[in-house]
């Protein structure tokens, strides 16, 4: 993959830890690029254990949620495991309001996810 613009990916024992570069995930072009970069992780690079670290994310729109749902569906279809971590209370509330806390596997910290993947 060309150097990603929206995410930073680090490998740790066959687990890909993804951090978001944008603090606010709102812009439609940025969301489109973010989706493509996430999709490539499972579709082209065949990564099968992924942690999405939201530590840098202060705000995200429902359009960004939609892209994350698409990513979750692709990952599930391919057989990749996905865990979301380091979600702020405000962002977690967005997941809870929309019941997406029941769709995604969410853990407190990156270490928690690395321990179970």
């Amino acid at each position: 993959m060309a150097k990603p613009q929206r995410i930073e990916v680090n490998e740790s024992a066959n687990i890909s830890v993804v951090r978001f570069k944008d603090q606010k995930i709102i812009d439609p072009v940025a969301i489109q690029e973010l989706g493509q970069e996430l999709f490539e992780l499972v579709e082209k690079e065949e990564r099968r254990k992924i942690v999405l670290n939201f530590g840098n994310v202060e705000f995200l729109s429902s359009a960004a949620l939609g892209k994350l749902i698409t990513f979750e569906k692709k990952a599930k279809r391919i057989g990749a495991e996905l865990i979301l971590t380091n979600i702020s209370p405000e962002i977690y509330q967005v997941f809870a309001i929309t019941n997406l806390d029941k769709l995604f596997k969410i853990m407190d910290g990156e270490a928690d996810a690395l321990a179970v993947l």
Partner: peptide, 21 residues
């Protein structure tokens, strides 16, 4: 209702639920 258990994977429709909340 985007929040219904059988519709969680539907891509859109969450904006209205968030505004209401």
């Amino acid at each position: 209702d985007c929040c219904a258990a059988d519709r969680l994977e539907v891509i859109g429709g969450r904006g209205l639920a968030l505004m209401q909340a």
